[in-house]
Design a protein around this nucleic acid. Structure first.
Lengths: 216, 216
DNA sequence: ATAAAATTGGCACACCCGTACCACTTCATG
DNA sequence: CATGAAGTGGTACGGGTGTGCCAATTTTAT
């Protein structure tokens, strides 16, 4: 009953496409709709950028609008609330991150993952983890957090040629993620992390090929 | 030059005692000073409580003062800024947590650590991790984060009778902490975490005692 | 006793926040 | 063309924030 026009779209699924309002005819997308999609996407990437830059508290309606060069009201028009904006930003961040990690692994393998951590944009990672922890308090974000974990486990399992549900792959990911976070937050010397990663990889591969020594 | 009386104590160390202002004579602590200490401590525990309850953003001057049944100005009197308050709350939280974990390990060993996670106050842990990640952006908090990691590594190393610098102990802690955080955020079935923990413990202890089976 | 210093607590300033509101333009469709 | 919905953007409201200010009070030192 509110004169607010757009948000009466109760069927936006979790990873829903940017469809702020369904017109009466669901035919082809009109150019206006296309522009709307673009605007929405712009806002979202602005939110992601802010999230990575200043973390979490930096993602305000005003900041997002300004960063996207859009009026303040656009944020409330395309996103029903700040929470929704944050949730979608989180989801997008996770997808981006998974893609990045995937290409890294296929190009460089697992053994140099620590270097990827060192290479990657530090603040971006911090934003991701910040949101990850926050998901512990907000059930709406929890499934995104799970998606991240599952995605990473999948990457590692395939890289190691293990079945996806193999607990060793699962455990290896867990270890790597902790290494990752620790490195990110505490910024200890990189060698330390590298050593630990190789040790973890050794542990994850149970039978080191039957000892060539001791032929007797 | 500001007429603000108290905070001209530039020598408050990191884990400094609550000594808002040193009188001219540093003799025995007078009862008034004792009351001041108590007030300060009250504020701090109020901050810790709020931090664990609502996380991070819930720790405002007003909320802390109200929780401690003290006037608003007390917070700015005993803590020069909100950041300082948060830092001290973080430090206290870490110390408390370390003590809790220590007693658990000495009483129950490492193998049931997952149950401790399940038992412990979930929101408290979330607050801790929230602050831990935040330490990645605030160098003033970083050494507290390191202190947490080092403390936990120490606990595990002594529990396993390993030298403190043993990378296996280090790695085991890393894995456990990740398991911990994952469980906390994603709330997967507890069995899963238990399985992974035992697997991690197996990995950490390189030579499983010489197989009793296969006597031949 | 008296002055100086520390402490207390009430108050207000300036700022930023999420979000509602509402004229206005654009556009698809009758 | 007319019309009504979708989209746009400027503005305002109510509320919460950190922190500075200051008069009153208590404690300490002389």
């Amino acid at each position: 009953m509110t004169p607010h026009p757009a948000p009466e779209n109760p069927a936006t699924p979790d990873t829903g496409p940017p469809n702020p309002a369904t017109p009466t005819t669901t035919a082809t997308t009109t150019p206006a709709q296309a522009r709307g999609k673009r605007r929405r996407a712009t806002l979202l990437t602005a939110a992601v950028t802010l999230l990575t830059e200043g973390g979490f508290a930096a993602v305000t309606h005003r900041a997002v609008a300004q960063r996207a060069n859009l009026p303040l009201a656009a944020t409330t028009y395309y996103f029903t609330s700040r929470d929704q904006l944050l949730a979608e930003a989180f989801a997008q961040l996770v997808e981006t991150e998974l893609a990045t990690t995937r290409t890294w692994i296929t190009h460089h393998g697992l053994t140099t993952l620590t270097d990827q951590i060192a290479t990657a944009d530090r603040t971006r990672q911090l934003g991701l983890w910040e949101l990850y922890v926050h998901a512990g308090r907000d059930p709406a974000l929890q499934h995104i957090a799970r998606r991240w974990t599952d995605g990473c486990v999948h990457l590692i399992a395939t890289a190691l040629d293990l079945p996806e549900t193999n607990p060793r792959a699962r455990l290896l990911y867990t270890t790597i993620s902790a290494l990752w976070l620790e490195q990110l937050v505490e910024q200890r010397p990189l060698d330390e992390a590298r050593t630990l990663l190789t040790l973890a990889l050794e542990n994850a591969l149970p039978p080191p090929p039957p000892l060539p020594t001791l032929p007797q």
